Each structure stands twice: as structure tokens, then as C-alpha cells.
Simulated assay, not measured.
Amino acid sequence: MKHRVSIIAMLTALSWAGPSIAQPVAQPDAFARLGIARIKLADEGKIFLNGTRDPAAGYTTPEKWVANIELGYFVLDTVAIQFAGTTPATTPNKPAGSLEAVPNLGNDKFSIFTLTGTYHPLRGGPVSPYVGAGVALQHVWSLEDEFASNLQVDDAWGPVVQAGAEVAISDRFGIYVDVKKAFYKADASADIGPNRITAVAELDPLILQAGALVRF
């Protein structure tokens, strides 16, 4: 009988404590996130040799791992504006398909910046998922010729969608996972001897990241 009473008392206490644990916790409006991000470009597009399209030609770029920094502010209770940027990544531009035998044309160093609005329906809970959308910019910092000369890769920008979740460690600290998918094209060109190669590259990067966050 004593054990039964103890169990009933414990369950009663948990039933009273449960709702309070699940209640959203007030959090500061500003936050910063620092994480590791994996960038993979789509490696699609149209390749032209001396102005004539080669439908069998393509190109490849490797995935890149970079740091990602993001700052945000809640302009409404569940709506935030977030600005993020990656540290520079250097990627080779290797022809593929019918041009597979051609060595790396050259390297470009770039960063990706995003400005998004995000909706956090469960803000303040132990797990806070969110979705958002905005605009992304891929900025080329520098170019380096290798097999080709006069390598040129333009900046590109376009829409981006975003989704993720934050897990609270305290009212100020937490961890997060995030995925972004952007959609844009960039013009690129290079010279191989007397031949001119141009491309309309569909970059469409996929950015996966995870890291830590602090609210202030």
C-alpha cells in the first residue's frame, strides 16, 4: 500500500510538472550561430566551344567544407531576419563529358551569403523547428588560371529556401542543424590556346550545416 501511494504521488507530481516543462521559455531577440557547412554545387549548365554548344560537355566541382557565421533578430515573436555568410572556399573547374581529358581550367575562391526571413512556430521550446526563404549571393573573391588562361567566373544571385531546427541547452545557448538550397546561374569563360570556352553554369548550391548558437 505504501508503495502504491508513493507511485501515485510521483505520477501526480510529474503531471503537474510536465506542462510547466513544456511551456515556451522567454528568449532574447538577437542571436548568433557558428557552424560547419558542406557546400555542393549542382555542376549543371550549358558549355560552348567557340560559340557552339557542345551538349556532351560538362564540368565538375568537389564538395567543400567551410565555416558558416549567421546573425539574426526576431522582428516578431515567431519571425526572424537572418544574415549568413561562409568563409571562402576554393574550387577547381574540371571539364567533364566530351571534355573530360582536359585538365583543370583554373580555380575560383568564393563565399555564399544569404538574407532570409524565417518562421519559428515553436520558439522557446526545447526543440524549435523553422522554415524560411530569401535571397542568396555567391561572390567570387579571386580567380587563378591553370590549364586555361583568362578564367572568368561572375558573381551570381537568386532565391534560397531554408529549413532547420534548434535544440535549447539553456535560455541563451543551444545547437542547431540547417539546410539551404539556392537557385542561380553564373556566366563563366576561359581560353585554351585559340579556343574560347564559355558556360552558363547552374550552380544551385546545397548547404548543409550544424553548430552552436548563442542568444543575446
Results as ranks from 00 to 15, higher is better:
P126Y: 12
E100A: 14
G132H: 10
A89K: 09
L99M: 04
V102S: 03
S111I: 12
T114W: 03
R53Y: 05
M10I: 08
V131W: 07
A56P: 03
A136R: 06
L11Q: 09
T114K: 08
N104H: 07
P24Q: 04
K109H: 02
A57H: 05
A101C: 00
A22P: 00
P95F: 01
P88N: 11
V102A: 01
N107E: 11
G85M: 12
N104D: 15
F83I: 13
G18Y: 15
L11W: 09
L115Y: 08
A101R: 09
F74E: 03
A80G: 06
A96T: 12
T60W: 03
A84H: 04
N50S: 14
L137R: 12
I47S: 06
A136S: 13
T78I: 08
L105N: 08
A30S: 14
W16M: 12
D108C: 01
K40G: 14
P121E: 06
I36H: 07
A30E: 06
P95R: 01
T116S: 13
Y130H: 10
T91H: 06
L71G: 11
A101Q: 10
V127W: 02
E44L: 02
I69C: 02
G117Y: 04
A30I: 13
G117M: 05
L41C: 03
Q82E: 15
I81F: 14
P103N: 04
G35M: 06
P103L: 03
V127L: 14
S111T: 12
S111E: 08
L11A: 13
A101P: 00
A37Q: 07
S20Q: 11
N68Q: 09
Q27V: 15
R33I: 05
L122S: 00
F31A: 11
V102I: 13
S128F: 02
N107M: 01
P28M: 12
E63V: 07
H120Q: 04
P126M: 12
N104R: 10
A57Y: 04
G124V: 11
W16T: 07
F110Y: 15
T118D: 14
T116R: 13
P121K: 10
L49W: 04
V131P: 00
A22W: 13
K94I: 09
A80C: 01
A133F: 06
T87E: 02
W16H: 11
A57I: 05
G18S: 13
E44D: 14
E70R: 15
T12A: 12
Y130A: 09
W65R: 02
T60N: 10
T118I: 00
A133E: 01
Q82C: 12
V127C: 07
A17I: 11
A136I: 04
T52E: 03
L122D: 00
Y130W: 10
P88D: 06
V127Y: 04
E63Q: 14
V66W: 02
T90C: 09
A13M: 12
A42W: 05
K40R: 15
A30D: 03
P95G: 03
D77F: 02
G85F: 09
V79G: 01
T91M: 06
G134E: 04
L34I: 15
P28Q: 10
N107V: 00
P55C: 03
N68C: 03
